[in-house]
């Protein structure tokens, strides 16, 4: 079961929910509660000064992949109130963040990942660290997470398909994790791989799939070490659902969403640029860098504007797309001498 009934919720899961919320979200959640007929006592909204910016609606909290996750989520540092680790733009509601996904291992429709991922196994989970590092090995996820304090970050997510969301992630900086494995001076790039679980991933079993699984992505080392680059293990104060890349995924907010690889099982440090899935599939469409850029159109989608989700037919937010998705100040220096139209 993916979504818990309110009666199943453990007290420890409720903790992150007793938090500050904006009135709009409170109203929406109240409506959801009423609709579900749940009779939870009102939570103490706005009680804690140092609370998270956002929490999953009561009743929709995820089941933790294993019990140790609950302890890990006990203390989460809330996002600061200023850019770049936070944006005051309206959050995309939890229901949309978790039901409108691209995760092609589960299918091509946006609803496939949430509808077809209930069998996905995220425990036990380990990540293989290999290549140009002093401490290679296969590490259990609990050990990988142990030294890291979780924090919240509210980032814009811009998909190459010209839609975007604002998502409160829970996780830790990738740079902190990478340092622990002590990359050598020859580590110029880091390559990531998504798990292959054919039994639980219908998209992988399709006879007409044209992707050479596993899904692969990569970053240049300076991109990986950038302060914005984030490893997420949760969203909205709760554990990552399968469709959002459970149990651990990358978040690179200044790049198109496909760079933010999900359900990671391997990180390989290397001297040469790795192949990446979309680039292999259509090199003229998907570049290695994939930096958000309103001036460089993709052969399928123009990129000068984006549809900020959720939309309704009567209130469509079509907003201008910003260079580097609005994170120019933090990242532009890494691409100073590059022709962004050529290195798309």
């Amino acid at each position: 079961m993916l979504i818990k009934k309110p009666s199943d919720i453990q007290p420890s899961e409720i903790t992150p929910e007793s938090v500050y919320r904006r009135r709009r979200e409170f109203l929406r959640d109240s409506a959801a509660l009423l609709a579900g007929g749940a009779m939870l006592p009102p939570l103490a909204f706005g009680q804690q000064g140092d609370a998270l910016k956002a929490a999953a609606p009561p009743g929709l909290t995820r089941t933790p992949p294993a019990t140790w996750w609950e302890d890990k989520f006990e203390t989460i540092a809330p996002a600061p109130s200023e850019e770049p680790f936070y944006t005051a733009e309206s959050l995309t509601p939890y229901q949309d963040v978790t039901r409108y996904n691209n995760f092609y291992e589960f299918g091509m429709d946006k609803s496939d990942p949430s509808n077809r991922s209930s069998a996905f196994q995220t425990d036990p989970w380990s990540i293989e660290i290999s290549g140009e590092v002093a401490k290679p090995g296969t590490y259990h996820l609990e050990d990988i997470l142990k030294p890291h304090d979780l924090e919240e970050r509210v980032y814009r997510l811009r998909c190459v398909e010209a839609w975007s969301m604002v998502i409160p992630w829970i996780g830790f900086p990738l740079a902190d994790m990478i340092r622990r494995f002590e990359p050598t001076s020859r580590a110029q790039y880091v390559e990531f791989e998504t798990i292959i679980q054919p039994d639980t991933m219908p998209g992988i079993r399709s006879p007409f799939a044209i992707v050479d699984w596993p899904y692969r992505e990569g970053l240049r080392m300076d991109e990986a070490m950038n302060e914005l680059t984030f490893m997420a293990v949760g969203l909205y104060g709760s554990f990552l659902p399968a469709q959002n890349g459970a149990p651990i995924r990358l978040v690179v907010p200044w790049k198109y969403g496909f760079k933010s690889i999900k359900s990671i099982v391997r990180m390989h440090f290397r001297e040469t640029r790795p192949n990446t899935t979309w680039n292999d599939l259509q090199a003229n469409e998907y570049g290695f860098y994939a930096n958000v850029n309103p001036a460089v159109h993709h052969p399928r989608w123009r990129q000068d504007t984006e549809r900020r989700l959720p939309q309704t037919l009567f209130s469509r937010q079509i907003i201008p797309t910003r260079l580097f998705n609005g994170y120019e100040e933090q990242v532009a220096h890494m691409y100073q001498d590059m022709d962004l139209a050529r290195h798309y």
Binding site: T92, Y100, E161, L309, P310
Partner: peptide, 15 residues
């Protein structure tokens, strides 16, 4: 589906 608000968060694309 429009009336029932059943087109999801990106109704334009869905249509």
């Amino acid at each position: 589906r429009i009336a029932a608000n059943d087109l999801g968060p990106d109704p334009a694309q869905e249509l």
